[in-house]
Design a binder for these strands. Structure first.
Lengths: 235, 235
DNA sequence: CGTTATCTTGACCGTCGTCAAACAGGGTGG
DNA sequence: CCACCCTGTTTGACGACGGTCAAGATAACG
């Protein structure tokens, strides 16, 4: 579980044992629970075992922007591992099973075992790359491409994590939340979804989405998986 | 120069010597020179000694989005230090003096000297935090606030670096580039600038900008410097 | 079943993009 | 010094993408 992501980032040998030996506590969170609040001094480091989560910031006037999504198996707090105060909120999207580790213990481990530190670093860099792609997506693509891009990214990431049956997946979020992730309103997300559906680029019932014309969608989305650094396994 | 940023991120002792001992080459680049191209396998690591630079990505249809700005003293390639292939472009904004270090040498140093590795990591995390704020800024703020926020961030960062005389600064970019950074068009950037100017929130001649009503601007921008993690000096 | 969140749709409006032209400034070369 | 050009700034008219407001439909849930 913990090591799953570690391996995703870079190969470690038997320091998996060291990782597994870390004391952790398991807990189930309800949807929309806060795991980290902006302004907090993070003490724990959470790993998402099942369910989904997201990072979020708000403007002074209360508009919300979701800044990243996290799928089962991903660590949630590397972004704050070495920072003294949280600059954004982390929330569960669905009911989620979460393991928390002591931050100092993990830091110690990252320091003493180079390959673990390396793996964490790579994970952080890939997340940063995704942030950059989101800036491009929100800044420069219209609503249809933007949504399509989001759906493609989610599909690929779920696929890599082995969570998905190729035909499609269940979107774990409301259209309101989708809007918050894309910099759109819920109403316009709805129209955009229906527009993609009308063109046969996606099909769905309820929140389950499938991709009858994957290549066409990918092209509309202007999606290339380079920024996910999927081949960045070893070092 | 190199150590300046290192110190900015976390305190190192006499491994400054190790940093200074790294072999480097100095070179002056013309405006708009590419330092890294998307798809490259980065071999060098650049540090900006003077001048400005930015990161940029493009959509398939050729729209450009500037994803971050860099001011004198900042390292430019930590984002790719441990990744095999570049996911974005790095370009000079102005004429710039740049020192390049061997990537493997720096990686070796980061690995052998914990405090240097730590400093680099913190720097990366702060950059990631800025990416997140940009996502919020582009996704959820209107043109006036968005531009104001950008100007505030730039002012604070220049100030921290000691590059600025408190009264204001010279914006090193065209309105076209400003638009690319904000997810707007050059035309609308122009209107927005004039709108801020008309309200007395900024004043300028040519590209020199000053802030007669800093607090009002900061409020419009909804700007809080928390995300810059300015107090993150030690560890 | 009633209550609530989410989705859906329509009418209307505003911010921002598009297109185009005029204008200013800074080089360069005659 | 002036003609010339190039890049960047400024302005206007117009249109569209996406936001706002509001109501109704649908599904989830106790």
């Amino acid at each position: 579980m913990v090591r799953k992501l570690e391996t995703h980032a870079a190969l470690s040998e038997d320091d998996r044992r060291a990782l597994m030996a870390l004391p952790y506590t398991l807990r189930v969170y309800e949807p929309s629970s806060y795991l980290v609040r902006e302004g907090d001094a993070p003490e724990q480091c959470a790993v998402l075992l099942s369910g989904f989560a997201y990072r979020q910031k708000q403007t002074g006037s209360g508009m919300r922007q979701i800044v990243s999504l996290h799928i089962p198996g991903e660590p949630l707090d590397f972004q704050h591992l070495f920072l003294d105060v949280a600059d954004h909120n982390v929330q569960t999207l669905t009911r989620a099973e979460i393991a928390t580790i002591s931050r100092v213990a993990l830091r110690e481990l990252a320091r003493s075992r180079a390959s673990i530190g390396h793996a964490i670093f790579v994970n952080t860099l890939v997340e940063a790359s995704i942030f950059r792609e989101w800036i491009l997506n929100i800044g420069r693509r219209d609503a249809r491409s933007r949504l399509a891009h989001f759906l493609c990214e989610f599909a690929i990431r779920l696929d890599m994590q082995g969570v998905v049956d190729a035909s499609g997946y269940e979107l774990p979020m409301s259209q309101e939340q989708l809007g918050d992730a894309l910099g759109l309103t819920a109403v316009h997300v709805n129209r955009t979804i229906k527009s993609l559906e009308a063109d046969g680029l996606i099909s769905r019932n309820r929140r389950r989405i499938s991709f009858p014309r994957w290549e066409a969608l990918r092209e509309l989305a202007d999606f290339s998986s380079r920024y996910l650094h999927l081949t960045q396994q070893a070092s």
